[in-house]
Design a protein around this nucleic acid. Structure first.
Length: 303
DNA sequence: GGGACGCTGTCTGTTACATCA
DNA sequence: AGTGATGTAACAGACAGCGTC
């Protein structure tokens, strides 16, 4: 258990969290009307460690942690702070005067320190605040993401300024957004390929069966002569591409070209083969062919 | 020219918090 | 009220590209 007198010192010297390590921040706190680090203020406010925690919680209850700070974070970018370690250090850029620290920032810092002592005492892990973005902020970010899914420093700065966020927050949001987009695309890819696989498996099964039937019929020429070929046309519901008549010099492969979003059938005679036969889902929009693989080729194992 | 080095941005996996059922 | 699932902000580490020496 930490002594009261030690608390201020340890808070200012022992921050393992890089975000709070800037001495200017502590200086600003020391000169603020909410100064909690001067011994009297601190001990008055938080007489003991246990009571500290409770008072912190009580004191901070009802504070909107998402409140847009009254200052911008241009200094952060100007100082070239864009690394993952810069999240909170931006609160105390070198160019900022102590006067620029607002009460809300102080409360945030206070909360952080209170929480730090909580986590330090309770689990020893570093605390990190999680700020929920507002709907408006998210909407603007989404709009911006639609236009360009990466940001150059100027765009990031402008967006951060517009939203009242730190550039680092905008940066992180875009990182996470790209990751989510990629994940979703991967899921779509997976679903599409699974459907392809299912349909091809079914088609393979059907062809095997047909081969078997033909072999049987071959043994009885009379039937074979009377039989009409089991030809069916296949039309893609999206592009309305219809598999054409049998090519004179047909290869033995059934090829699906996802890039063209259409199916090319080149067998000895057309067969009813469609990827979409069992799926109401339209063609998957393919954007990254490198990840998809360019061609899917099904060789008839019997030929 | 090219290797070492530092800087920067992005990707990827993970963690921790907020929210909801 | 407690709890698990889910979404996501934030983080850390790896990596690639680029400029400089």
């Amino acid at each position: 258990m930490m002594e009261n007198q030690d608390l201020g010192l340890s808070l200012s010297l022992n921050f393992s969290d890089k975000r709070t390590a800037n001495p200017l921040q502590l200086n600003s706190l020391a000169s603020s009307p909410f100064n909690l680090f001067q011994k009297n203020s601190w001990t008055d406010s938080f007489p003991s460690s246990d009571q500290n925690l409770e008072k912190c919680r009580t004191f901070l209850k009802g504070i909107d942690v998402n409140r847009v700070p009254s200052i911008t974070y241009e200094e952060e970018e100007e100082a070239g702070v864009s690394s993952p370690n810069s999240t909170i250090s931006s609160l105390s850029g070198n160019k900022r005067s102590e006067r620029e620290i607002t009460c809300y920032e102080e409360l945030e810092i206070m909360e952080r320190e209170c929480s730090r002592s909580i986590s330090d005492e309770e689990d020893g892990e570093t605390y990190r605040k999680k700020l929920r973005l507002t709907k408006d902020q998210s909407a603007v970010l989404e709009e911006s993401f639609k236009e360009h899914n990466t940001l150059n420093p100027k765009q990031k700065q402008a967006l951060a300024k517009r939203l009242g966020l730190r550039p680092r927050q905008v940066e992180v949001w875009f990182q996470n957004r790209r990751a989510r987009t990629k994940l979703k695309q991967t899921e779509v890819d997976c679903e599409f390929l699974k459907r392809c696989c299912d349909n091809l498996t079914e088609e393979n099964r059907r062809l095997q069966k047909e081969v078997q039937e033909l072999r049987t019929l071959k043994l009885s020429p009379q039937f074979y002569m009377q039989m009409t070929p089991p030809t069916t046309l296949t039309m893609c519901p999206s592009c309305e591409h219809v598999a054409g008549p049998p090519a004179p010099s047909a290869s033995r492969s059934t090829t699906i070209d996802p890039r063209a979003n259409q199916m090319v059938l080149s067998q000895r005679r057309p067969v009813s083969f469609t990827l979409w036969a069992t799926s109401p889902v339209p063609h998957r929009p393919i954007r990254q062919f490198g990840q998809m693989g360019s061609l899917l080729i099904l060789e008839n194992p019997r030929t």
